[in-house]
Design a protein around this nucleic acid. Structure first.
Lengths: 193, 193
DNA sequence: GTCTATATAGAGATAGAC
DNA sequence: GTCTATCTCTATATAGAC
């Protein structure tokens, strides 16, 4: 296993810290202590904190949506696809010390304190996810996997809000177990009965 | 209308700032500028930031739960009760410049950076709300207003996560309109059909 | 690229005059 | 209770040596 280059290491550590503490609860000093370099050196790679955030979101959104698209393109049933999609959020929450939220859930909470370019990226993440959820739900309703009243889009937005928000709530109370139950409850609500 | 005393004004402004920017995105300086006193004066009323947070959460939780208990004790139908409960969150989001989240949603996101006493209060808020939701849903299911599979408790925890999280998501995209649609979608999901 | 050193600004917090 | 003044610490950020 090759050692990751410093730039990647910085991104990795920054992501972990933000997912746990938020942007405003984390500093270059915090990153430097984990990576093992001086904080001035971080500025070589990311001159401003915003540069770091933009690069981090680029990578995060790209990776996340690539996985989601893989799920959509698979030959799984609609129900399995949705379970796998929800599983992505569960995996985040369960990783490490069980206190990591989705990067864009944390940034969403701190939205008003962020610069325009970062806000735009967070918005794109939300939009892209909801579009994909809409596709998934629409297909599932047509193939008879799901049954629910109302618009597909409204359901997609409900589910996305539940996943992003449910993670944050679960960190306060109940943890991964409780988050899992919530997702199970959701599946029961929209499955055909 | 009598002018509120300074202590109350500080709490009011701090609450507004935290609901928009988060604890870590807001400072005594910010409060002092709005209230119109020097930041040193704030320390007279709340020596440490934690003192302010504890006092703020005491007041917020007390007020919020009092209103919720009023809803539960009313003679409204279960459906109306649930709508009124959800309306509390809608009202928060719609107040001011449409960028205010529930105080405890913001604190929940920043949980790991908070001190134990504050964490405990956030936790109590979540617990208390879910207990009340459980009572409301249980009654509604028995009187035939609601129909949903699974445990009442799981449903309560789903709804609370959706409300707290949905507010944060709505601030990023769609605003109050979209949050309202999400709630409508929820109502359709659990109503008898 | 990384380091030391430093600049500058803002944070939370305290002392003491009025 | 509020003010001015100040302390200490930490934050982001830059300059220049190695």
């Amino acid at each position: 296993m090759k050692q990751a280059d410093t730039k990647t290491q910085i991104l990795d550590v920054a992501q972990d810290l933000i997912q746990r503490l938020g942007v405003n609860g984390m500093s270059y000093q915090d990153i430097s202590e984990v990576v093992g370099i001086r904080k001035a050196s971080i500025h070589t790679h990311f001159p401003k904190k915003d540069d770091l955030l933009v690069a981090l979101l680029d990578r995060y959104n790209d990776r996340f949506l690539r996985i989601v698209d893989g799920i959509l393109a698979s030959s799984d049933s609609s129900e399995v696809k949705l379970r796998r999609y929800c599983g992505l959020f569960e995996a985040t929450l369960s990783s490490g010390n069980q206190d990591k939220a989705c990067l864009c859930a944390m940034l969403g909470a701190e939205l008003i304190t962020l610069n325009d370019s970062v806000v735009e990226q967070v918005r794109r993440f939300y939009q892209a996810n909801q579009e994909r959820l809409t596709i998934l739900l629409d297909a599932g309703r047509q193939d008879g996997s799901f049954s629910f009243p109302g618009e597909v889009q409204a359901m997609a937005s409900l589910i996305f809000g539940l996943l992003e928000g449910g993670m944050l709530v679960a960190r306060v109370q109940g943890g991964a177990t409780r988050f899992h139950q919530t997702i199970e409850q959701l599946m029961q609500l929209i499955k055909c009965r």
